[in-house]
Design a protein around this nucleic acid. Structure first.
Lengths: 163, 163
DNA sequence: GATTTTATGTCAGTCATGTTGACTTATTTC
DNA sequence: GAAATAAGTCAACATGACTGACATAAAATC
């Protein structure tokens, strides 16, 4: 154990630095999901419904296959929550114009309301963390998070200048 | 909508910045957990077992109540995975010396091996992200993540100087 | 010393969310 | 015309969460 107990020299990645990274992700995700989960429970829905509503809101007209690619679950798993959301009129389906096999998914007004109320707690949490941390820290956060995400999905996050 | 489409001015938090923050957390956590999940599936265990093994390794001698406080699940939920881990001799229990009602939890040698092999993929992912991002970005990452975590748990992450 | 609280564990039932495998239908592509 | 693709369905199952009720041992309090 080369435990020099030096000042911070993060390019010499100690065991403890890495462990702290693991724990930051664990606690942040735990707290980040707690509020919407509690709201969802009250209306008989779960986190999986939130994810679907979120990404349909994010990419209006998204196809089922595209959604499966993002969520990385099976179509049978998606089917259940998507059926719930369509039945309860949070999400509308319409056939694709170019490819009529596709079902393009969009939020109804009711779905927009749900998405907003669920994600607002998360937006507030992010906003408060960003404000407290400052612009430079936010850029560092972005950079490290992108490094954690598999390379295939990094293109979903265009650099600040391009936005 | 005051959409000025300016250059990056992160103190004016636009809708899109916040949405990007939400998605960074979603994708990072999804990819961060995928590798250990796949390894666990091969030996008939799940993510819940990983969490327990991780935190018992992190805090040797931790009590059941303390572990429940970290995981934020019910004792019935913990009981099942903890029993598995004790039965399969990944975790050992011994009565507390000061309070003999407590069961102090520690990893066995077998448990240490399991914890290491599971978390190694995660450590490697963090290490690679940290190296690619650089020291300043890592500090920003830490700061923002701490802002996302509920205040009660921030003390678990001492500032760099104090480590 | 008796009572209450705490730490832990257990039994039973339920729900949400994931899985695999098999199969169907409509449509598009080759 | 045949094969591939997009979507959906049925069935069975595993995991990990939950609630509620109850039990035991030990510690803390009155």
């Amino acid at each position: 154990m080369t435990d020099i107990k030096s000042g911070p020299n993060p390019l010499f990645l100690r065991e403890e630095d890495l462990r702290q990274g693991i724990e930051l992700l664990f606690y942040a995700y735990r707290d980040f999901t707690a509020e919407p989960d509690a709201m969802l429970a009250k209306i008989g829905l779960g986190r999986a419904h939130h994810r679907v509503v979120y990404f349909v809101g994010r990419y209006p007209g998204i196809t089922v296959t595209e959604l499966l690619g993002i969520l990385q679950i099976t179509k049978q798993s998606l089917s259940r929550v998507l059926s719930d959301l369509v039945d309860q009129e949070y999400i509308a389906q319409r056939p694709g114009t170019k490819d009529r096999r596709q079902r393009l998914l969009t939020l109804t007004d009711k779905g927009v309301d749900l998405e907003r109320s669920l994600s607002d707690a998360q937006r507030a949490r992010i906003a408060s963390a960003y404000r407290a941390a400052g612009a430079a820290a936010v850029e560092g956060f972005r950079t490290v998070m992108l490094g954690i995400i598999d390379a295939e999905d990094r293109a979903k996050f265009p650099p600040p200048g391009k936005r």
